[in-house]
Structure formats: structure tokens, C-alpha cells
């Protein structure tokens, strides 16, 4: 985290996912010397957020019709990756910061993963980092429990004048039904003529992991705020990422 500048946590709820995504994508625009780090947490009704590469699938119009008829409007984000469903029970987090010249992509991912791990630790959970290859939107910085994806991270780099800005975003499944999320993604790719199996058994939620806590997005956010206030969010030096194949995983220990 930027020394001496704990992130300012902004909690927002939107009437559409499009509005939330727009807010997230404009977040870095509010950064400056006086505010070098911002953390946005937002919720919105359900939508399927695509990566740009998804827009070139063979039958996108048919997939759009099918998903919209099922109540899943399609959006496109500017932070890479592939289709990721959001909605009630999922929490969107975006950490925007000014990046020094030697600040790397992995450093940005590590910061947000560290924030999530701090909250996970408060529930007695040790999150794993590494690609969940058979879950939706797989990536090296997937966050999982017992190999089942709990959150996916993506990142966008921008420049404003001499400032390098990076926004690292996470979509965290707090309490959404993995079956619903998996079905949405599988339906999208099947109708787009690019089938990609997505089993709900590859997905997880915090509510499933610690049912005794009855975790909600509001409760998670409170713990996140407590964690930030308590300064328990720095990334440990032992944190590393899995290799490209996702064959190894490493717990983030705080």
C-alpha cells in the first residue's frame, strides 16, 4: 500500500451494473498526489461482464439475446479477462492507485489479494492464489478455497500526464449461488458458439465456506473496513503466485 496513505474505502450501490462498472472504470481519474489510493466496493443487480475478447466470439448477438432474455444484460469491461457474472451476493472491489515506475502488475494484484486475504483470515480462512482453470474467467490471480474459485482479479493500466495509474478489480462471491453463476457463463458461451464448460463445483462462496457466520456483502465490507482501520492489510513478503499452469498454489498468510 502507498506508505502513509491507507486506501479510502468507498461503498456504493448502483441500480444497474453498467453504472457500477462505469464508476469503477472512472475511479483512477480521482487519483492524485493528495489521494494516491482509492478502494471502491460496489454492488448492483445481475449482469454478465465480458472481456473485450468475448466481443469477437462467433455468435455474440445470439448470446446477447439469450442472456438478456434470462435477465443477464451484457457489459464489457476494460480490464481484460473473460465473462464474469455479477449481481446480488457478489461484491465488486476496485483498488486504484498511483504506480511508481517499479510497480508491477503482480504488485497491484498482490495488494488487492492481500486485502481480501486479511478479511478471509478474520473468518479463519486461508485463501489460495492460483489459476482455477475450469472456473469462469480463469487467471493467475484467482482466489480460491480448496481449489474452488471465490474471486477473480483483473487490472487496467492508464497514464495521466506523468502519473501511471493502475486499477485492480476483484469480483468476489460472497453469497451468490454457484449454480446460477456457472449456468449464466455456460449459457453465454454455448450461445456464442464457443462452448466452455463451467461446473458449479469449481466455484465457491464465502457463505458456503463459513456458514456459521451467515456472511453477507455488508458484513464482509464491515470486516474489510475494520481490517483497513487496523492496518492488517499489508501484503506479506511470502505471498507468491501460482505458476502459469495453476499447478501450484500458495496460501496468503498474514
Amino acid at each position: 500500500m502507498v506508505k502513509g496513505h491507507p486506501p479510502l474505502l468507498l461503498k456504493e450501490r448502483f441500480s444497474t451494473a453498467a453504472a457500477g462498472l462505469q464508476r469503477q472504470e472512472q475511479l483512477a481519474g480521482a487519483l492524485g498526489p493528495e489521494r494516491p489510493v482509492l478502494l471502491l466496493a460496489w454492488q448492483a443487480p445481475q449482469a454478465l461482464i465480458l472481456g473485450h475478447s468475448d466481443t469477437r466470439l462467433p455468435d455474440l448477438p445470439r448470446a446477447r439475446s439469450a442472456l438478456e432474455a434470462a435477465g443477464w444484460p451484457l457489459l464489457v469491461r476494460r480490464s481484460g479477462g473473460s465473462a464474469c457474472p455479477v449481481g446480488p451476493g457478489t461484491l465488486q472491489l476496485a483498488l486504484a492507485r498511483v504506480a511508481p515506475a517499479d510497480f508491477s502488475m503482480d504488485a497491484g494484484y498482490g495488494e488487492l489479494a492481500g486485502l481480501l486475504a486479511a478479511v478471509g483470515a478474520s473468518y479463519g480462512l486461508a485463501f489460495e492464489v492460483g489459476e482455477c482453470a475450469t472456473a469462469f474467467c480463469p487467471g493467475r490471480w484467482d482466489i480460491a478455497l480448496a481449489g474452488r474459485k471465490l474471486a477473480g482479479l483483473s487490472q487496467r493500466w492508464q497514464q495521466r500526464g506523468n502519473l501511471r495509474l493502475v486499477t485492480t478489480a476483484a469480483s468476489l462471491n460472497v453469497s451468490a449461488d454457484p449454480h446460477s453463476l456457472a449456468a449464466c457463463v455456460e449459457t453465454f458461451y454455448r450461445h456464442a458458439d464457443a462452448p466452455r464448460p463451467c461446473s458449479p463445483t469449481t466455484l465457491h462462496s464465502l457463505a458456503q465456506a463459513v456458514p456459521e457466520h451467515q456472511v453477507t456483502c455488508a458484513k464482509f465490507l464491515q470486516r474489510l473496513a475494520d481490517s483497513l482501520a487496523g492496518g492488517r492489510t499489508s501484503l506479506p513478503s511470502s505471498c507468491s503466485i501460482a505458476d502459469q499452469t495453476g499447478a501450484t498454489r500458495q496460501e496468503i498468510a498474514l
Binding site: 473485450h52 480490464s79 481484460g80 479477462g81 480463469p138 493467475r140 482479479l153 487496467r156 492508464q158
Partner: peptide, 11 residues
């Protein structure tokens, strides 16, 4: 231009 990889985008 914009370039996107599996997990990041950069202008």
C-alpha cells in the same frame, strides 16, 4: 491503442 491480456488491460 488498447491491449488486453487474459488478466490485464493497458492503454
Amino acid at each position: 491503442a488498447v491491449v488486453e491480456s487474459v488478466k490485464a488491460a493497458s492503454e
